[in-house]
Simulated assay, not measured.
Amino acid sequence: MQNQLRAGLLLGAALLLGSALPQAPVFAATASSDAHVTAPAKKAGASSIKADASSKKADASAKKSGKPKAAAGKSKDGSKSAANKSKSTRKSAQKDAEDQKPGKLADFGSDAAPDDVVHVANWVSYTRNNRKKAFVVIDKKNAELYVFAPDGKLKSHAPILLGKAVGDDSAPGIGSKPLSQIAENEKTTPAGRFLARPGKNNHGENIIWIDYDAAVSMHRMRKVSEEERRAERMASPEKDDNRISNGCVNVPHAFYDRVLRPAVLKYGAYIYVLPETRTPQQQFGSYDVEKRVLAQAAESGA
């Protein structure tokens, strides 16, 4: 009986010992596994947390600095810029189309003018050759100057004095010659199209340059000498005696101050000096606008 009891006790102890022995390595392995796996995991977790914190900090910094808003603003500004550019392009195209349309014929009102003056003024206005500036037509044959507004409407006209010699070209180097060295046949008023340039002469007087290089300008009539009788020549109905200057165009004082100079200063101006040794067509490449308009009207009517 005692032996059975003892055997039972030994068996129970053995069972207890057997159940304890397998579990010890498991707990050891788990502990070891935690030591080698969870430590790097914790390190990675710490790095992750740190990275998250850095990311949040960067986001906060970016938000604070307004960079995302700036980027959005830039995109908006870019869109506005593109829209403005497109609008500007459309306006430019419309302007070009408008400029290509024929203008009106010159408007002389109730004033009569020689054929060549009408021809050139019509051509300038119709073709917009004056580029939205006022324009001046100088008729050398009849010693008369005409001032037009940019729209081709005649503002006024007046008699003038001009170059003593007949001719349409300036002598080479004429602009650098002293007056005493200019020959009589070199005292011409050159024909052509010129951009008016307000300026002053060497006496400080206001003038309007026709051809600066050739030293040809429009200015108030000057009294040079009694023998020249410039005021009498200007008032005379005869045109031949208006040829008296070295090449410049002398204009009545009141007309220069009230009509010519204000128009040039306000609008800018092109000057068309009509030729006297060739035709306007040869000089400017002009054509009879009235005939063309009538021909076009007939074609459209047919």
Rank of each mutant, 00 (worst) to 15 (best):
N3E: 15
R6P: 02
A13G: 13
A13L: 11
L17Q: 06
A20V: 02
L21I: 06
A24H: 06
T30E: 15
T30G: 15
A31G: 03
S32W: 09
S33L: 15
S33M: 14
D34S: 12
H36S: 12
H36A: 12
V37Q: 15
S48N: 15
A51W: 08
S54H: 07
A60R: 06
A62H: 07
K63Y: 09
S65G: 13
G66V: 02
P68L: 02
P68H: 01
K69M: 13
A70G: 12
A70E: 13
A71K: 10
G73N: 10
K76E: 11
D77A: 13
K80I: 10
S81V: 10
K85P: 08
T89Y: 14
K91R: 07
A93S: 09
K95T: 14
D96W: 10
A97I: 07
K101E: 04
G103A: 09
F108E: 12
G109A: 06
S110W: 14
A112W: 12
A112R: 09
A112E: 15
P114D: 02
W123C: 09
V124M: 03
S125W: 02
N130C: 03
N130R: 02
K132T: 05
K133V: 00
K133G: 00
A134M: 11
F135V: 00
V136P: 05
K141E: 07
E144S: 12
V147M: 13
P150N: 15
D151T: 09
G152M: 11
L154E: 14
K155F: 08
P159V: 04
L161F: 10
L161P: 10
L162S: 08
K164Y: 08
G167N: 06
D169Q: 03
S170W: 01
A171T: 11
P172V: 00
P172Q: 00
K177R: 04
K177M: 05
S180M: 03
A183Y: 11
E186M: 12
T189P: 01
A191S: 12
A191P: 04
G192L: 01
L195R: 00
K200I: 04
N202T: 07
G204F: 01
G204A: 00
N206P: 04
I208K: 02
W209I: 02
W209D: 03
D211L: 11
Y212N: 01
Y212Q: 06
A215Q: 00
R222W: 00
R222P: 00
R230S: 12
P237C: 00
E238N: 15
K239H: 15
D240V: 10
D241G: 11
N242V: 10
I244M: 08
S245A: 04
N246H: 08
V249E: 01
V251N: 07
P252C: 03
P252S: 03
R261H: 10
R261M: 11
V264A: 09
L265G: 03
K266I: 01
Y267W: 09
Y272A: 05
R278K: 06
Q282F: 03
G285V: 05
Y287Q: 05
D288M: 08
K291I: 07
R292Y: 04
E299A: 15
G301W: 08
